[in-house]
Design a protein around this nucleic acid. Sequence first.
DNA 1: TAGATTGTTAATCGATTAACAATC
DNA 2: TAGATTGTTAATCGATTAACAATC
Lengths: 212, 212
Amino acid sequence: MKKISHSAVHRLILYRKLLKIQLHTGDDYIYSHNLAQLAGRTPAQVRRDLMYVAYSGSTVRGYHIAELVKSISMFIDSPTGQGVALVGLGNLGKAILNYTVGLNPKVEVRAVFDKDPVKIGTITEGITCFDVHDLEKIIDEKNINVAIISIPSEGAQTIADRLIAAGVIGILNYSSIRLNVPENIYVENRDMMRALEKTAFLGRYFNNQVIF
Amino acid sequence: MKKISHSAVHRLILYRKLLKIQLHTGDDYIYSHNLAQLAGRTPAQVRRDLMYVAYSGSTVRGYHIAELVKSISMFIDSPTGQGVALVGLGNLGKAILNYTVGLNPKVEVRAVFDKDPVKIGTITEGITCFDVHDLEKIIDEKNINVAIISIPSEGAQTIADRLIAAGVIGILNYSSIRLNVPENIYVENRDMMRALEKTAFLGRYFNNQVIF
DNA sequence: TAGATTGTTAATCGATTAACAATC
DNA sequence: TAGATTGTTAATCGATTAACAATC
């Protein structure tokens, strides 16, 4: 199996997103330098990234947008699709549902979990909220192997352990602790405070306000 | 001025966070291999990263935790502190406030903006919500140079233009469009769907379920 | 054909890793 | 001192960039 860097995966997903938007603008084809500009990359970088997916552009017309989207999807998405569980239906959980539900049928949120009796049984963005007590059962029933953690730090590790034991292989972690997981489990951490501090520093850095 | 990579900045912020937690465990000193384990890095990588900040460890005791935190902060934080504006007080905006307010006095959310009259004038996590119409005035008054965008895609570019014109140099963008900004402005994009798709792919990749 | 673009190879750059002298 | 750790230099690795032949 060939290797691919995390950042290349991230970029391919970005290209697909940008291409989907281009689909609605009328043009059938796009050149690497147009896509590069949209993505904030160089044309050569884009062409190199695209060589991961089995699709060749035309030297005259560039890339057929719809075909390229299809090729990227064949590369990135699971052929059978993947189910996603969201744990924690607070403000963040609701926002995540709002930003993700319905966008990619191959990466589909199939269940929400919470421990609050008021929330259990409600439906948000079309997804039912289950009792976190039934986590293992529902994950098995709904064939879920990806999870999003949007609960406070205290319970996060316990939930992660249960998710992994139930068959989850990828975790998007919005809690502010770092999870301890086996090495075959992928964890993507999204720490909001860390992102804010990074933005504050790099803003000054870009404006030459940092001296060291 | 020396150069530093975005990822090194991101790691230094992580180290500081992990060290702050260690502060409460009783030990005064920590070795690079302990910090490395917490951060998921190698000891040599940690030592190399730490050489950006002007602080030397002891060859016998390792790094004095409190001193190292101070040195990282002197490196990362602005001496005068930076004000932050949050634009959009929906579920996501409320979650962001919840995850960031009060954690770092040098990166301080000083104002929230929304266009909803019901929200304007309310106080969340101690921060007043202002009319987005008064954006420029408040940003100037409260000496803000960092902003978080947590509004739907449609209005995001217009808001970004106004923020930049008002003096913002760093933007943490949670909307799902890419912002067009001058090259001296730093934008950190946080696309939830992209993060989810990446997690789904890399989960399978880590488990050798991806063939290409 | 001429010209613009693509895919691929070679050169460069930077980050990571390994090795080691210096320190207490 | 012996031993463990640090800071720094050298070697390796990988990604980015530049160059260019192939294509229509």
